[in-house]
Computed example of a mutant assay.
Amino acid sequence: MTRVLPFVRPAASQDVPQAVQTLAAAFADYPWTRHTVAADRHVWRIERLQELFLTRFGLPYGRVWVTGDVRAVAVWTTPDTAPPASLGEELDPLVAELTGDRADVSARAEALMAPHRPAGPAWTLQTVAVHPEAQGRGLGSAVLRPGLEAAAQAGLPAYLETSSERNVRFYERLGFAVTARVTLPEGGPLTWSMVRAPSGPH
């Protein structure tokens, strides 16, 4: 019996509310966000952070794909359209406010991961999520496929970071390889840097 692949399409502005809900549900108990985002009003903070990233970075400057029902979301940044430096300066105070009493921890975590990120052009998977109620249906690999194919067609590596060992195995099946392992200080999680070569899996 032929398996029907989930329908995946580029995201539009009207998808933002549902995409935010999907992302927040998936990241509510994720090790990285638990470590870097304040515990009080935790889910609300994640929702606002994801909304900020989608509306100010992902949609205007990156590539965002969703399944038809927006139960899966993948947000990439690419070398093609870089946001102006002034945007980061504008949003940094908002991000610090939303991370709350974990703002300094979040900044240190980012600084620790920075040396392991690609020095040259690459497609970077900034975030991907499948709503917990829709997991196990192939939505994750489906929503990632367009970005992986676009990176390969451009002859560029794809890069990501994950704080879940289960995710590491999932990404390895998609052709990624671990390039660094970083344990975040102050009780933070082990985080993996992973790269997929332009030629994809062999």
Rank of each mutant, 00 (worst) to 15 (best):
A39V: 11
L5W: 12
T2G: 12
V182N: 01
T36L: 05
T99A: 09
P84Q: 06
L98F: 03
L190H: 13
M113W: 11
E89D: 13
G147R: 03
M1V: 14
A109E: 01
D80M: 12
R145K: 14
S199R: 14
G138Q: 01
G200Q: 04
R34Q: 10
R71T: 14
A134R: 10
T36D: 05
V4M: 15
L112Y: 04
P189Y: 07
N167C: 02
A151H: 00
V75A: 10
A119T: 14
E149N: 11
V168N: 05
F7P: 13
L98Y: 02
L125I: 04
A150S: 12
T22I: 09
T183F: 10
E172A: 07
L52G: 02
V195W: 11
R9T: 03
W65F: 07
L190W: 06
S141F: 06
G200L: 03
Y159C: 03
V95M: 10
H202I: 13
P118D: 10
N167V: 12
A177Y: 10
Q153E: 14
P115R: 08
V182I: 09
Q135S: 10
A129Q: 00
W192C: 01
P93N: 07
A85F: 09
V37L: 10
T183L: 12
R137N: 13
L112Q: 08
R63K: 13
A154V: 00
E133P: 09
G138P: 08
V4E: 15
A134P: 09
G100M: 04
A158E: 01
W44D: 15
A114K: 12
P10D: 02
A177H: 13
Y30S: 07
T55N: 09
A12G: 11
A142Y: 06
T22W: 03
T78H: 05
Q126L: 14
H116M: 02
G62K: 01
A38T: 02
P60E: 06
V128F: 12
Y171F: 06
E89L: 15
P146M: 08
W123D: 07
A134Y: 09
P83C: 08
V4T: 15
E47W: 03
M113V: 05
R34W: 04
G147K: 02
G88L: 04
S13A: 15
S86R: 08
P115G: 00
